[in-house]
Simulated assay, not measured.
Amino acid sequence: MRFSREDLARVRLSAAPDPLWEVALSITKLYRPNVTEPYAEWAAWTRNVDDLRVRSAARVLGSLIPSRGYFPDFLTPADGSPSLEEGIDAVLRTPRRKLRANLGRLGRLPGWAQGLADGDPAALGSLGTAMRTYHDGMLKPHWERIRRRLEADRATTGAAMLTGGAEQVLSGLGPAVRWRDPVLEVDYPVDREVHLAGRGLLLVPSLFCHGTPVSLADDDLPPVLVYPIAPGRDWMRASAPERQLEALLGRTRSAVLRAITYGGTTSQIARRLRVSPASVSEHVGVLRGSGLLASRRQGRGVVHSLTGLGSSLVAGDDAPWPAVNSAQPEWCRPTPPPS
């Protein structure tokens, strides 16, 4: 990726974890025959999901997203997806020309996807349903832990941006990335050269991105670089304090408190948790009155952050999840996509 000075000034971080990138990249892990750490425990957990709708959704997405190589750009809109529903809406608005071009790169398509390439509303609606169902069945049970790790990386990267600028951030994206002004070199399965040409670069941290960063295939789209974080082997493990916090405060209120770990407005917290702003506002009032968080006005909004007491209550050590059956059932073995 070739940068100008203008591009360096336009390097920015995604505003929030992008659920569509996590959906797409998790599919690439789901169908690999030998899933390595840190995803082995999650992949084993998914094999115990017995909801037929979730299984069907996984097969639908697996027919478009191979375990390695290209998958369609339109599944991960270039402007980012602050929420699952907004992201799916963007996918469903994809122009027919782009659908045909993206899907054409996959080669022979399954029968149901022929209508998708033609922009058929029913086929698009089925795709949106599959994305939502898969997310809710395979990722949502763990989304709070995923979100917390992505928010932690975003906070660290944001601090590096403030203290050392974009070049320091680009230099710290991992061993597969090398910053040699004015070029960012990334280990990648194919040879590419991207001229940012003043458009800047959006950096998106991802838990299911592993080893090598990922970019959109179409160089005419706004430049995006999805980079891996280091979640650790134990990211799937529930913490004892987390369970105790839920028992003390209730599920929603404890989720609100954890969601405020890295700060945010009422609307931002509501989007993270996919609950109404009114519900978040009610819980924020109780938590603030209990001395667990503080609120301050920033511009036209109000930003909430944890107090020392709130931070101490949220923090804790991890304990392992119960063992799960690691056998791979038939539904988790899709037909390999054409070369």
Results as ranks from 00 to 15, higher is better:
237 R>P: 00
193 E>C: 00
72 P>E: 14
23 V>P: 13
47 R>I: 04
140 K>E: 14
99 L>F: 07
55 R>Y: 13
16 A>F: 14
30 L>M: 15
98 K>A: 15
279 S>A: 13
122 A>R: 15
299 G>P: 03
222 P>S: 14
234 D>G: 07
4 S>L: 11
211 G>D: 06
102 N>L: 01
212 T>M: 13
228 P>R: 01
178 R>W: 05
41 E>A: 14
5 R>K: 06
312 S>R: 07
271 R>M: 00
124 L>E: 08
293 L>C: 14
74 F>P: 07
153 D>M: 06
232 G>V: 05
309 L>Q: 10
297 R>G: 01
3 F>M: 10
137 G>R: 02
118 D>K: 12
157 T>K: 07
233 R>E: 06
147 R>F: 05
12 R>Y: 12
192 R>C: 04
157 T>N: 00
285 G>M: 06
222 P>K: 11
49 V>E: 09
259 A>W: 07
27 I>K: 09
333 R>P: 04
196 L>H: 01
272 R>Q: 05
174 G>L: 03
267 S>Y: 05
63 S>T: 15
29 K>Y: 06
183 V>G: 03
47 R>T: 00
99 L>T: 01
20 L>R: 12
317 D>L: 10
53 R>G: 15
263 G>N: 02
109 L>E: 06
193 E>K: 03
113 A>V: 09
256 V>K: 04
14 S>T: 15
228 P>A: 07
202 L>M: 14
19 P>M: 13
311 S>I: 01
276 S>I: 03
237 R>D: 14
250 G>C: 11
326 S>E: 04
123 A>M: 11
313 L>N: 06
4 S>V: 13
322 P>L: 10
107 G>M: 10
196 L>G: 00
163 T>H: 08
94 T>P: 11
247 A>P: 00
268 Q>I: 04
259 A>K: 02
227 Y>W: 10
304 H>F: 08
239 S>M: 02
258 R>S: 06
79 D>L: 13
177 V>F: 01
178 R>T: 15
283 H>F: 11
325 N>L: 14
194 V>L: 15
135 H>L: 09
33 P>T: 09
280 V>T: 00
148 R>N: 09
105 R>A: 11
247 A>E: 08
73 D>P: 13
70 Y>S: 03
182 P>N: 02
205 P>A: 04
216 L>C: 11
